[in-house]
Nucleic acid binder design. Structure first.
Length: 152
DNA sequence: GCCAACGTTGGC
DNA sequence: GCCAACGTTGGC
């Protein structure tokens, strides 16, 4: 799951309340559908820093709720306000994400070095989806082969 | 700041 | 339902 560290970094997420952070602002149907249909409480999350100097995986988190309406869609003062959405028929959903740990930054160039990760959606050219599924094989590879390495 | 990629909008 | 125009994303 992508987050802009200027908005919510892994440090911010770790400092948040125990329930985790509500993943507000997703305004893409595909990403919404992943939260609505594919995510389960307890699912592992790679916390990805995007739109920053060093984009890459910055930590581990987990899904901490089922999906529910994103309150920012109803708030006219929010940048995520959607006038076409109503509480009776909400268009946008979110899940709570609970940060588990900060990891060393695994940047895009490093991720691209590994053939085992070459199919990751996040690495595809032109990918803009802010939430993308990770296979069990990719998850295990990242945890066992990349997280373990020391920094520098 | 550039720009490729891609999602959304709206006229027809 | 098509598709051109437009807006946004996000790495570089």
């Amino acid at each position: 799951m992508k987050s802009e560290p200027d908005e919510t970094s892994i440090d911010d997420a770790l400092a948040a309340k125990a329930d985790g952070v509500p993943w507000t602002g997703v305004r893409n149907y595909q990403a919404r559908n992943f939260m609505r249909d594919a995510m389960r409480v307890g699912d592992g999350v790679l916390f990805y820093h995007s739109s920053c100097a060093e984009p890459g995986i910055a930590g581990l988190a987990e899904v901490n709720s089922t999906s529910y309406p994103d309150p920012t869609q109803f708030d006219p003062s929010s940048p995520y306000y959607d006038p076409k959405s109503t509480p009776e028929n909400p268009r946008w959903l979110l899940v709570d994400v609970r940060a588990r740990k900060k990891t060393r930054l695994i940047g895009l160039p490093e991720l691209r070095e590994h053939d085992e990760l070459s199919e990751m959606i996040i690495l595809r050219r032109g990918n803009r989806l802010s939430i993308t599924p990770v296979t069990t094989a990719e998850w295990n590879y990242i945890l066992h082969h990349l997280m373990a390495k020391k920094s520098h």
